[in-house]
Amino acid sequence: MKDIFNKYEKKDENILGLLEDIQTEFNYLSEENIRKVAEAFGVPLSRIFGISTFYKSFSLTPKGKHIIWVCSGTACHVRGAPKISDRLTQLLGIEPGGTTPDNQFTLETVNCLGACALGPLVVIDGKYHGKMSVDKIEKLLQDYK
């Protein structure tokens, strides 16, 4: 945490970058860390909280061990992405945005990952799985369980 803090000069334009690094490192923004950022930059806590809830990259609760992104960009959408996310909801018992009670999986839909030739696209822990189908997704999920 100290290293991340020291990376940035304490100027307002660095708040976002710092929060992004915290999010990447800890998988979420804890109340403690949000307080620390507000204190370090000398800005009201409400402002950091506002930023943390406005931008989609930030999460106030811990995410699961495996993060599943279903690309919901237009190209993937017309190629059947909604069917894939419906199937994942069914298999995992969580809606997009949710985390399984055992903290194994977080399911998210993302706007576009820019690999439209591979659509419908599912990314698990940063690994791209292209040309996905409702049938293939179940097998794929087994590899991560």
Partner: peptide, 24 residues
Amino acid sequence: NRGAGAFVCGESSALRASIEGRVG
């Protein structure tokens, strides 16, 4: 400056707000 997943920040005045470290 890296964005943080808000589509509206592609709009010029929101983008500027975001660079300034505010809600976009």
